[in-house]
Simulated assay, not measured.
Amino acid sequence: MPRLFFLLPAWGLALLAGLAHGAMGLSEIPGADGDGPVTVFYPSSSETQPVRRGRFTLEAAHQGAPVRGNGRLIVVSHGSGGAPWVHTDLIRGMVDAGFVVAMPEHKADNYKDGSNPGPDSWAMRPAEVSRAIDATARDARLAPLLSFDKVGMYGISAGGHTALSLAGGRWSPAAFARHCEAELEGDFQACVGLITRLTGSWFDHIRKWGALFVIRRRFTDAAPHEHHDPRIAAVVAGVPFSADFDLATLATPGVPLGLITAQQDRWLIPRHHSDPVLAACLPRCELIADLPAGGHGSLLSPLPPGLTGLIGELLNDPPAFDRAAALPELNRKTTAFFSAHLLP
């Protein structure tokens, strides 16, 4: 990937230099009827202050006055049970580069309500992304500062599944069931989430039987799911769930597609997920970054503190992962990808 300064004219460099030390605004705007709020981050002329959100404290201008950046929007799709706050380091870099960033709250699969993750959520998420674009376009403060003909989209984990859908991929719940029937033991957490895990004990055969019993009965729909939004012009998928996709539909992505992989991912094991996508789409997609020592949660920044039990094992950084060295460069490359494909 060429460096950003090779891609922008002089006026663009001046704009980014001016924004680099600006404030990040933060507000929530109403979603469509039936949707949760859309959290929006944007360049602001207001003063920042500490803003407390759950276990996180952000430096942001809450309800601050928006100012025009580069005129482009990026929508972020969070992972299962996710929240905006675990993406704020990446988002801050995007805002510094002039982008407005919007994040929908995916129904029944967010930090407030995690009651229905998996294929049921995956079927709804792409349309929720489109409605988040609509919500931003209705906002009286932000809409005049943006053009909506070229929108970026970023997602990780379940949000990475959303990203692949919006890049032109087709999948089905029945394909999810077939994958789990074939690879249940080797990809157990991808198939069952956090409900249980294999321990090597004799109870494992009961856990596997129970998982397949539920999966075979719930996920029978073989109709392909797809969603197209002509406004989306560049997509990044990080550590995505992808084993239920028809890989032929990702061989030639409909828009520029970047991928981020983590070789120590124990939740969405690369050989079942990101590796087949890359094998199908390269060189027509781009490997933005591979994290040889990174795990599933290594793209989250800041990482939720104090994670224990199974979720801690799946999300906490592997011992060899150097977060301080890897994440700033990863975030820079991700922002540069969007700048290359969305800016004039």
Results as ranks from 00 to 15, higher is better:
residue 6 F to C: 09
residue 7 L to N: 01
residue 10 A to T: 09
residue 13 L to V: 15
residue 17 A to W: 06
residue 20 A to C: 10
residue 23 A to Q: 00
residue 32 A to Y: 00
residue 34 G to C: 05
residue 35 D to L: 13
residue 38 V to E: 01
residue 39 T to H: 08
residue 39 T to R: 03
residue 45 S to A: 15
residue 55 R to N: 11
residue 55 R to F: 08
residue 57 T to I: 09
residue 58 L to P: 00
residue 62 H to W: 12
residue 66 P to C: 12
residue 67 V to E: 10
residue 69 G to P: 05
residue 71 G to P: 03
residue 78 H to N: 06
residue 83 A to S: 08
residue 85 W to D: 08
residue 86 V to W: 03
residue 86 V to L: 15
residue 88 T to D: 09
residue 88 T to N: 07
residue 90 L to E: 08
residue 91 I to Q: 02
residue 92 R to A: 12
residue 99 F to W: 03
residue 106 H to K: 03
residue 107 K to E: 10
residue 108 A to L: 08
residue 110 N to W: 03
residue 110 N to D: 12
residue 110 N to H: 08
residue 116 N to C: 13
residue 119 P to A: 06
residue 120 D to K: 03
residue 124 M to P: 00
residue 126 P to S: 00
residue 127 A to S: 02
residue 133 I to M: 07
residue 135 A to I: 04
residue 136 T to N: 12
residue 139 D to I: 09
residue 140 A to T: 13
residue 143 A to D: 03
residue 143 A to V: 10
residue 156 I to T: 05
residue 159 G to S: 06
residue 162 T to N: 02
residue 167 A to I: 03
residue 169 G to E: 13
residue 169 G to V: 05
residue 177 A to N: 04
residue 178 R to P: 05
residue 178 R to Q: 13
residue 179 H to P: 06
residue 182 A to G: 10
residue 184 L to W: 02
residue 186 G to W: 11
residue 187 D to T: 02
residue 188 F to T: 05
residue 188 F to A: 02
residue 190 A to V: 09
residue 191 C to M: 10
residue 192 V to S: 04
residue 193 G to Y: 05
residue 195 I to H: 07
residue 198 L to K: 02
residue 200 G to Y: 05
residue 202 W to G: 15
residue 202 W to N: 11
residue 204 D to R: 04
residue 205 H to V: 13
residue 206 I to N: 04
residue 207 R to L: 07
residue 212 L to W: 05
residue 216 R to N: 12
residue 221 D to C: 09
residue 223 A to H: 13
residue 226 E to F: 07
residue 227 H to M: 11
residue 227 H to Y: 10
residue 236 V to P: 12
residue 242 S to Q: 00
residue 244 D to M: 14
residue 244 D to T: 07
residue 245 F to D: 11
residue 247 L to W: 04
residue 248 A to Q: 14
residue 249 T to Y: 14
residue 252 T to V: 14
residue 254 G to W: 01
residue 257 L to S: 09
residue 258 G to W: 00
residue 259 L to I: 01
residue 270 P to G: 10
residue 280 A to T: 02
residue 281 C to G: 11
residue 282 L to N: 09
residue 283 P to T: 15
residue 285 C to Q: 04
residue 285 C to V: 01
residue 287 L to S: 10
residue 290 D to L: 06
residue 291 L to N: 04
residue 291 L to E: 03
residue 302 P to T: 10
residue 303 L to V: 07
residue 305 P to G: 14
residue 309 G to T: 08
residue 313 E to K: 14
residue 314 L to H: 02
residue 316 N to E: 04
residue 316 N to R: 12
residue 318 P to Y: 03
residue 319 P to L: 11
residue 322 D to A: 09
residue 323 R to N: 11
residue 323 R to K: 10
residue 331 N to F: 04
residue 333 K to A: 15
residue 333 K to Q: 14
residue 334 T to M: 13
residue 341 H to D: 14
